[in-house]
Design a protein around this nucleic acid. Structure first.
Length: 342
DNA sequence: TTAATTTGACCGGC
DNA sequence: GCCGGTCAAATTAA
């Protein structure tokens, strides 16, 4: 049987990437301008101004960090190791669904209860394996659909599919598995291209002062889970089990666990489990303080680190992209440099 | 009520 | 038969 694409003109990963990069750059630059305005025009900062400065600083960092992570993930970072992912056991969901559709057309019931779990393994295809130590937003909304203990591994593997699998036929999937605890490290396996057009836009930085720790604040990028965030503000209201493998209705949300920030903060983005594509409103913004280590056994924490690819990266390094990240009148050697300058 | 997660069952590849 | 990946009913949360 011939396998056909689910969309007539699938959006390539490169297009997705460039769109995300563009969005993040715009946000970052906008925030940078705000910061500069504050610095230049309000030397005697009031508390509210300082808060605004902090907020914009974090937004800038978030945007830059996200873009850098994307560039790494796409192969721009030459310092990262690239390797071929020799995964031989793939699931060809497309093929299965095609078969199912054909069977449905012909009166079959591939997805009926009698044939639960119908699919075919993908013999080959795109996959990207990434090892990460914390979280970044890849710009897509994911839904967890499974968890499995893997042989010779200490932690279960978690399976995520694109939220738009059913409404748009997006076949992208992601596997997340914790591979070490100290330092905490996760292995991500992305499979399939995102064909959904409803990209989850860059989440807003959620900033607020913790009642317990006024000297620091917390970030969250939830888009529509205010109650959860508020609950998380008080650890006593947030059961420990919520971070275990078997709990929490919001594991996919925890996948992008907000973190406490004291100094140059790693910036985390939190996927929204919602299917809408709206940027979070101000009412969505809150702060949440979660355990410093996102302890989900599922390893639902994602970020950038070493990036590997099973296929030759379609992207070539473009130093102009990096230059776009930086103010025109100053070149920062790193995000740390950027932060220190702030 | 709706949506997301959990988890045992099921499937195909090896 | 084992193993990893997926499905979908049941459960949980918003």
């Amino acid at each position: 049987m011939q396998v056909i694409s689910k969309v007539e003109q699938p959006i390539s990963p490169k297009n997705d990437l460039m769109e995300n990069i563009s969005n993040h750059l715009e946000r970052g630059q906008e925030s940078a301008h705000q910061i500069r305005s504050f610095i230049n025009e309000r030397l005697g900062l009031k508390a509210e101004d300082r808060d605004a400065l902090d907020r914009h600083s974090l937004m800038t960092l978030n945007s830059f960090q996200t873009v850098l992570s994307m560039l790494k993930a796409s192969g721009f970072d030459q310092d990262e190791n690239f390797m071929i992912n020799n995964n031989k056991r793939k699931v060809d969901v497309l093929e299965c669904l095609d078969q199912c559709k054909s069977e449905e057309i012909s009166g079959g019931s591939c997805l009926s209860k009698e044939k639960r779990g119908c699919y075919k393994r993908r013999k080959s295809g795109q996959s990207w394996t990434t090892e990460v130590t914390n979280l970044t937003d890849d710009g897509h909304a994911w839904r967890k659909y499974g968890q499995k203990g893997i042989l010779n591994t200490d932690y279960p593997r978690n399976y995520y599919r694109c939220t738009h699998k059913h409404d748009q036929g997006c076949q992208a999937t992601k596997h997340v598995q914790q591979i070490s605890e100290n330092p905490i490290k996760y292995k991500l396996i992305y499979q399939g291209e995102h064909t959904c057009k409803n990209l989850h836009k860059t989440p807003s930085i959620i900033l607020d002062e913790s009642p317990e720790e006024n000297s620091s604040f917390y970030l969250s990028f939830q888009t529509n889970n205010f109650p959860l965030a508020k609950r998380a503000l008080n650890p006593s209201l947030f059961p420990t089990s919520a971070f275990n493998a078997t709990t929490s209705s919001s594991m996919i949300k925890q996948e992008y666990t907000p973190i406490k920030v004291d100094s140059p903060p790693p910036v985390y983005n939190q996927y929204s489990s919602s299917s809408d594509n709206c940027p979070p409103s101000s009412s969505d913004i809150t702060s949440i303080g979660l355990p410093s280590t996102p302890v989900s056994e599922q390893g639902d924490v994602i970020s950038s680190a070493e990036i590997y690819s099973s296929t030759p990266s379609p992207y070539e390094r473009d130093d102009d992209l990096f230059s776009l990240l930086l103010p025109s009148d100053h070149q920062y050697a790193s995000l740390d440099d950027f932060w220190e300058t702030l």
